[in-house]
Design a protein around this nucleic acid. Structure first.
Lengths: 338, 338
DNA sequence: TTGAAGACTTGAAACGTTTCATTAGAGACA
DNA sequence: TGTCTCTAATGAAACGTTTCAAGTCTTCAA
């Protein structure tokens, strides 16, 4: 295997000069530089990153820890992160904590060992103990899709309270006065925030939340659970005329179940989802949903991280909050033309 | 920052002993080991991966280079890779070549610098030049979703010819004698193979491909293109009674377009897709499709790679080909009960 | 009482870079 | 000719591990 010493030997220079050609070419005479570059090309020499990092004390790697790689939400976020990182010459290590604290711990340890430049993470639990530990080692951390309580950390999130408000206000504006809210565990910050948004919009309109909202709480936010929610909603003494689902998968399951029962969407029941996953717009009845700027979320988070690691002196921690956007489609608005 | 030398000092042992506690604990006396472990816990010492890798000559990292992270196909593959890698104590670096040779090159160079253990890749182009270069450096490579020509490389793929056959035979068995084949560029190996499968099935049934198949070739395999294909199919002098789409997105677009024209699926036209993406089963008319064992594809590929790097002496290169599976759902079979 | 064997521990060398103080060489100028 | 400057090139030290030959103790048998 070719190392820098061999290149130096073949080019007839010292190994310091080869290093200079690689890192500070302006210090090397034109002729020498060319000779060295030629030997590098001929031998196919590629510098050893481990050695470089050992010397430098840090690596060009960035860790990205997400809750679920197969969720299109995180995929889009990851794209944003990757693009921002590449632009700065960094490489992303994508880690999937799979909602497991154990896996999260293992990955954090591994990233620590690699002496990564920084870590972008959507933590499994809200406690920030393990995060503080990593930060204490001098690794920059940016919270993803979660606002930071402390001001010692950057964070990038989307305003879910606002998202819940948007969805609910839209349905109220269509004249609905009895609205179902179908959602997963309230322990998830996103879900709890969206619920607060719902209640806020209801009160804003001068209505009584007790009468106006039917809460349906499920174990998880999957299509299967969404299908099951139809039963619960329809068996209510006063069934809703509109339903807001805390994510698109729930909405998809619910729509399927309602259609099977001959209930028209949106004529009989209007539906609003959340996330704007890829298929939302291509369903037979396109789904009204709340869009989150996923790509931008990732891009901004990576930018903050890179800024923090590369210019720590002029960096001050920020809590960035993006605004969601309501996309009105066929599932919530009755149109003469189909 | 704590290093192994400081731990040694605090525990009152030599640095060699600390290393032994870390890597070969059985060589260390119980009492000493405990003392060292306590110091490690107290100081929060985490060994420096770069130094370890420099010494060892390779890292625990595995590179995974895919064509498109946001494609659910690759996401599932990535999950398989990750699980296999984790089980062996390796970490995966996910790289997105985005169909660009340039980005692919950049990632390969970066992975080479990191001295990764091995690389799993779905190459952008079929030429294997850059791959040979990496292999020449002693980095193991396994081709993903692409069979290897040379026998010097492991590869894991799915039999797309067979997949095309399955889809076509199924439609023929339902009595269809005029079948549309909607697909993207034939330069993609997957597409070309599926087409060969179609023709094979047609000939097998003793039919004339010229009469039995309407080829519709599109620029890309997206929903939008799928919608456009309806026009082309229906304007044929003898429109098809069934259509096989080279992926599910095309099928989705086509279904949407047909439904809008009042054409019943599967009564008027039967549809078969390819990939079994997540939403295929939850559409209002569930989509018949060809399933590929995505997770298993990734898992097997990672296993082969790890085997090659960890037991090179007893490793022989393999070309693994998985069989696809036809999932018959509502879009291709007329059922009395809906 | 001595020697051998076994159990632990030690510390130097090596991994492949980058950095930096030092040196060599070439002009310029008095 | 001698001195001063400036540019280029040099090579030793350092980064934090792992490995391994060598060393020290202890124990036990003869």
């Amino acid at each position: 295997m070719t190392d820098i010493r061999r290149v130096a030997g073949l080019a007839g220079v010292s190994l310091g000069t080869v290093s200079n050609v690689l890192n500070r070419p302006h210090l090397v005479a034109e002729q020498t530089r060319r000779r060295v570059e030629q030997v590098i090309a001929e031998t196919g020499f590629v510098p050893n990153g481990s050695a470089r990092q050992l010397r430098a004390g840090h690596s060009p790697l960035i860790g990205l820890v997400v809750l679920d790689v197969s969720n299109p939400f995180f995929t889009e976020v990851a794209r944003g992160v990757e693009d921002a990182a590449n632009a700065a010459g960094s490489i992303v290590i994508l880690c999937n904590s799979d909602d497991s604290t154990l896996k999260e711990q293992r990955y954090l340890q591994a990233l620590e060992e690699q002496r990564v430049q920084g870590i972008l993470i959507t933590p499994v639990s809200s406690g920030e103990a393990s995060i503080q530990r990593v930060r204490h080692r001098g690794i920059a951390v940016v919270l993803l899709d979660r606002p930071s309580r402390s001001h010692e950390l950057c964070s990038v999130a989307v305003d879910d309270v606002r998202g819940g408000e948007f969805a609910t206000s839209h349905l109220l504006a269509q004249g609905h006065r009895r609205i179902g809210f179908v959602h997963g565990p309230l322990t998830l910050r996103q879900v709890a925030d969206r619920q607060r948004g719902v209640l806020h919009a209801i009160k804003q309109a001068g209505l009584d939340p007790q009468r106006a909202v039917i809460n349906v709480s499920l174990h998880s936010q999957t299509t299967v659970e969404g299908e099951a929610s139809a039963e619960l909603l329809l068996s209510d003494a006063q069934p809703p005329t509109a339903v807001f689902c805390a994510n698109d998968l729930l909405a998809l399951g619910l729509m399927r179940s309602l259609t099977r029962r001959g209930i028209g969407i949106p004529e009989d029941i209007a539906i609003v989802g959340y996330d704007d996953v890829e298929f939302a717009s291509v369903l037979l009845t396109p789904l009204t949903t709340v869009r989150q700027p996923k790509y931008e979320l990732g891009y901004k988070a990576a930018q903050l991280l890179l800024e923090e690691t590369q210019h720590p002196e002029q960096h001050s921690h920020q809590q960035v909050v993006f605004q969601p956007e309501l996309l009105v489609r066929g599932s919530s608005v009755f149109q003469r033309h189909s």
